[in-house]
């Protein structure tokens, strides 16, 4: 039964996550192998893995607070140790909530909880919101966004009820910005960072959509790049170059099976080596 993840991407399946399969598929689409790691398997199997992805969903039913129960799980001892040693770690949506609650993000102080992913604040309601938004790649040394250009606009979907990055510690926010840890911001189709809904879909401070650690190998990302890893997944009616490409590919299935805007998050692993950068 025991899997080995040497040279492969491990997608961690906490009870209640629900994006593990498409996340593994998005990793495979860039030519790396990927497998599911059930939360209570022996964490030693993760040694030597190419990268770790904490996928989206509702780990432990969001009991107490999204991500916090998984953050205390035994497997996170191993994830934390591997992250410290430089293994690439990506938390998507619920996975981002786990990384924040585990103190791996922003990671300015080791395993200290310096941020929250708080309930969404929208124009006229609260709660769950699912839609396509645009991300702007910020100047950063983040491993996961290294294949995107500075200022590049990337459409991807969000789907969450608690995605508002916030902190009570102004110093932390300053240090994150200074250290190039604000990897991605919500923006409009032209790349303008407009602070109001719906460009900022959850009221996140300074439109922050993704935060990496100082070393750049760990990223907490609220939107779902695995749902934008194929051109087929891009809605025709969006207003940017990806949607134009999508429309131009109508009738060409091979083109639609090609790269989507979110794929380069995973492609970044192509150049990464297991255990270090």
């Amino acid at each position: 039964m025991a899997n080995s993840f040497t040279g492969a991407v491990a997608v961690v399946q906490f009870p209640g996550v629900n994006c593990e399969y498409e996340t593994a598929a998005a990793a495979r689409a860039v030519g790396v192998s990927a497998a599911i790691f059930r939360w209570n398997e022996d964490p030693a199997a993760l040694d030597g893995c190419l990268g770790i992805v904490l996928p989206g969903g509702f780990s432990y039913q969001d009991r107490i607070r999204a991500g916090v129960v998984a953050a205390k799980d035994r497997v996170m001892d191993a994830v934390s140790a591997l992250a410290r040693a430089g293994t690439p770690v990506l938390g998507i949506c619920n996975g981002a909530q786990v990384l924040v609650e585990a103190g791996l993000i922003p990671g300015i102080h080791w395993e200290k909880v310096d941020l929250a992913l708080a309930p969404n604040v929208m124009a006229d309601r609260e709660g769950y919101y699912c839609n396509w938004i645009y991300l702007r790649r910020e100047p950063t040394n983040c491993l996961w966004t290294k294949l995107y250009g500075d200022g590049e606009v990337v459409p991807v979907p969000v789907a969450h009820a608690e995605g508002r990055f916030t902190t009570e510690d102004a110093g932390v926010l300053e240090e994150m910005k200074r250290g190039g840890q604000v990897a991605l911001r919500y923006c409009d189709a032209s790349g303008a960072v407009v602070p109001s809904f719906p460009v900022n879909p959850n009221g996140s401070v300074e439109n922050i959509a993704g935060v990496c650690n100082r070393e750049g190998n760990v990223l907490a990302l609220m939107p779902h790049p695995e749902r934008a890893a194929w051109l087929r997944q891009v809605p025709e009616d969006l207003g940017d170059r990806w949607a134009r490409r999508r429309r131009a590919a109508a009738g060409d299935q091979a083109a639609l099976e090609g790269e989507g805007p979110g794929r380069r998050f995973f492609a970044a692993l192509g150049g990464a080596k297991g255990g270090s950068r």
Binding site: I64, R65, A116, R164
Partner: peptide
């Protein structure tokens, strides 16, 4: 600690 996140609660 577990039950609240001091950055929004």
């Amino acid at each position: 600690g577990l039950l609240l996140n001091p950055h929004y609660q």
